[in-house]
């Protein structure tokens, strides 16, 4: 007898996934870099809890490991790192958007609807295997796309990192929803990948800031010459 029954599982997974979607939207709606980091940390906590629920339900240790890694790396280390970067470079606000917030929100709303219709055919195939995917898969696709959208519409390098990380969270979520997670070695690989990516990008931000006295990536266009 599993500790968590199927209905509770579906329910809590759905709610946690929706929570992740909400944090993605709040990232879109905000301008403060520190708030981005806080939201990302919260998003990762939700993701960790979600994988924890699944791990307990199915008793799969590799998901448990992934959950622990999520808490340690994404919810704790990376935010800490990013906060340090923000402290050092003394840039706290995302300004000068290429797409303003209201329009961004509307676009992201459309993204959610689109992801839902994209996910439907996949779900038709998948339905036999897992039960909790009906809402999670569309949401995970939406979160990925919103992450990409953050990278497109915002200009500060720190926000780019946040966008990338949000995409990664979406990816992880979709992996969880379709196959109960990827093989452990891939997961661990990805975790270290993004940790390193965050580190390197963080370093880059320093360097960019030093050389251009701005972290606006638009300034990097001058590298063409």
């Amino acid at each position: 007898m599993p500790i968590i029954d199927q209905q509770t599982l579906v329910r809590s997974v759905d709610i946690l996934a929706t929570g992740i979607l909400v944090t993605a939207f709040l990232i879109i709606s905000s301008k403060s870099l520190t708030f981005y980091v806080r939201l990302f940390a919260f998003q990762s906590i939700l993701l960790g809890m979600l994988s924890l629920v699944i791990a307990v339900r199915y008793g799969e240790t590799h998901i448990l490991t992934a959950a622990v890694l999520t808490f340690v790396v994404k919810a704790f280390t990376i935010p800490l790192l990013l906060n340090k970067v923000i402290d050092r470079i003394r840039v706290r606000k995302e300004v000068d958007f290429s797409i303003n917030i209201t329009v961004s929100l509307i676009i992201c709303g459309a993204i959610v609807i689109l992801s839902n219709s994209v996910a439907q055919p996949i779900l038709q195939v998948q339905r036999a295997g897992s039960l909790f995917t009906t809402k999670v898969l569309p949401i995970s696709i939406a979160v990925m796309l919103i992450g990409l959208f953050v990278m497109i519409s915002r200009k500060k390098a720190v926000t780019q990192i946040i966008g990338l990380l949000t995409m990664e969270n979406g990816l992880f979520l979709s992996g969880l929803s379709i196959t109960h997670g990827m093989p452990l070695i891939v997961e661990v690989g990805i975790f270290f990948d993004i940790l390193v990516a965050a580190l390197i990008l963080g370093l880059f931000v320093f360097r960019i800031n030093k050389s251009f006295e701005t972290i606006d990536i638009a300034a990097m266009r001058s590298l063409r010459h």
Binding site: V22, I28, S29, K31, T102, L105, C108, G109
Partner: peptide, 10 residues
């Protein structure tokens, strides 16, 4: 308005 727009879209 950005915050409220978020509420609206959500």
């Amino acid at each position: 308005p950005d915050l409220l727009m978020t509420a609206f879209i959500l």
